[in-house]
């Protein structure tokens, strides 16, 4: 592979708006959006649990849609508006999902929690989950090894205004 082996590909300038703040970054193309957030923007609230799209801990909202940030390259997201867990609270006031997760004890270790909450925020926008089974199914891309699932569902229902 000659020089390709020894010399890392050139960095590419990209622009991201993360939680309303504009950032310009020079990144090697192999940097995922997840690593860009964690390692280049010091936003470690977004978690790396598997790095292969198998756990959902890295879920963020890109242009309002929930995605796994570990399976997309930062350069592919040039110009995108990204919301991470750090951007959900408004001036210190918790997002209703964040408060609901505390109220219902919807986590233990907390590591999957940012991904769960961002995923739930995406779910609310999608408006496709109408009952408990639909919430469970549409939240199944977020693993929780502590097993807080029933509390996660209850927290989401609280945020939806359901009893």
């Amino acid at each position: 592979m000659g020089d390709v082996t020894h010399q890392i590909s050139e960095r590419i300038p990209i622009h991201l708006v993360v939680n309303g703040v504009s950032h310009t970054l020079d990144l090697v193309p192999w940097t995922t959006l997840l690593d860009a957030l964690r390692d280049h923007l010091a936003l470690s609230g977004t978690k790396k649990g598997c790095d292969h799209g198998q756990c959902g801990a890295c879920t963020v909202l890109v242009d309002g849609r929930r995605i796994n940030s570990c399976l997309t390259l930062a350069v592919m997201n040039d110009g995108a508006k990204i919301t991470t867990i750090e951007g959900l609270a408004n001036d210190g006031a918790l997002h209703p999902l964040q408060q609901a997760f505390i109220d219902h004890d919807a986590f233990q270790c907390g590591y999957c929690t940012p991904g769960q909450i961002c995923s739930a925020a995406g779910l609310l926008v999608e408006g496709r989950a109408k009952d408990t089974d639909e919430i469970r199914e549409l939240m199944s891309g977020n693993l929780c090894r502590c097993g807080a699932y029933p509390n996660i569902v209850a927290a989401i229902q609280q945020a939806m205004g359901q009893p």
Partner: peptide, 12 residues
């Protein structure tokens, strides 16, 4: 409620 709850739900 967990006293570390806020830190965990905000990514802090």
């Amino acid at each position: 409620s967990r006293v570390d709850g806020r830190a965990k739900v905000t990514g802090a």
